[in-house]
Amino acid sequence: MNALLLSAWFGHLPILQILVNSGAKIHCENKDGLSLLHCAAQKGHVPVLAFVIEDLEDVALDHADKLGRTAFHRAAEHGQLDALDFLVGSGCDHGIQDKEGNTALHLAAHRGHPAVLQRLVDIGLDLEEQNLEGLTALHAAAEGIQPDCVRLLLGAGSSVNALTQVTGPPRDWCAPSAA
């Protein structure tokens, strides 16, 4: 992480602005492919998101990290409702799937963020969207042992009897599966 990414990660907007005005490269990434938007979204720093999106040029709103996750995915996965709402209002693509086929709905369900999950349901994400293993958000919530998310998804109309294509042990949600 360079100083610019760290300032976004910790939400230090004045430092970020100083660094940008001093010529910092705004399109930098860390070793995992996290950009300014990823860092700010994951930690819920809406003022930083606003500065990056509104004041910097040529920042791709839907840029993916090495897992194929956008800032929208990161906000959902880490329960950052305000950041998620800001990204939605900024016009991000809600339906992007990461390299494992997970949508923001899968990630929020698995990590147990019912408020974020409810917002994703409200904006119309497909409850039956399957990732590459055939898992829906309901499967992800069950696998992550998230009873509040399971109840929420069932109440929203998720299919209680949907089958997956998984035949082995559950996978690690934090890293791509070995191919």
Rank of each mutant, 00 (worst) to 15 (best):
N2D: 14
N2Y: 06
L6A: 08
A8H: 07
A8Y: 06
W9G: 06
F10S: 12
G11D: 07
H12I: 04
H12P: 02
P14N: 11
L16H: 09
L16T: 12
Q17S: 06
I18K: 04
V20R: 02
S22K: 15
K25Q: 05
K25C: 03
C28G: 10
C28N: 07
E29H: 12
E29W: 09
K31C: 08
K31N: 06
D32I: 08
L34M: 13
L36D: 01
C39E: 14
C39H: 10
A40I: 13
A40L: 09
Q42G: 15
Q42V: 05
Q42I: 04
K43S: 14
H45N: 12
V46D: 02
F51A: 08
V52D: 02
I53M: 09
E54K: 15
E57H: 04
E57V: 04
D58V: 01
D58F: 02
V59N: 03
A60S: 04
L61C: 11
D62V: 08
D65A: 04
L67H: 06
R69V: 01
F72H: 03
F72R: 01
H73R: 00
A75S: 03
H78E: 11
G79L: 00
L81H: 05
D82V: 03
D82E: 15
L84D: 01
D85L: 14
D85T: 15
L87W: 03
V88P: 00
G89P: 04
G89N: 11
C92T: 13
D93M: 07
G95H: 08
G95F: 06
D98S: 00
D98F: 00
E100P: 00
E100Y: 00
E100W: 00
E100A: 02
T103P: 00
A104Y: 01
H106G: 00
H106F: 03
A109F: 07
A109I: 08
H113N: 12
A115M: 12
A115W: 03
V116H: 04
L117I: 07
L117D: 01
L117W: 10
R119N: 11
L120C: 07
I123G: 06
G124E: 01
G124R: 13
D126C: 10
N131K: 03
N131S: 05
L132H: 07
G134L: 05
A140M: 14
A140R: 14
A141C: 10
D148I: 09
R151W: 09
L152Q: 15
L152I: 13
L152T: 12
L153T: 14
G155D: 15
S159Y: 03
S159T: 07
S159W: 01
V160Y: 09
V160C: 11
A162Q: 10
A162K: 12
L163P: 07
T164N: 11
T164G: 05
T164W: 04
G168I: 02
G168P: 00
P169Q: 14
P169H: 12
P170I: 13
R171V: 10
A175W: 05
A175E: 08
S177T: 06
S177P: 00
A178T: 04
A178K: 06
A179N: 01
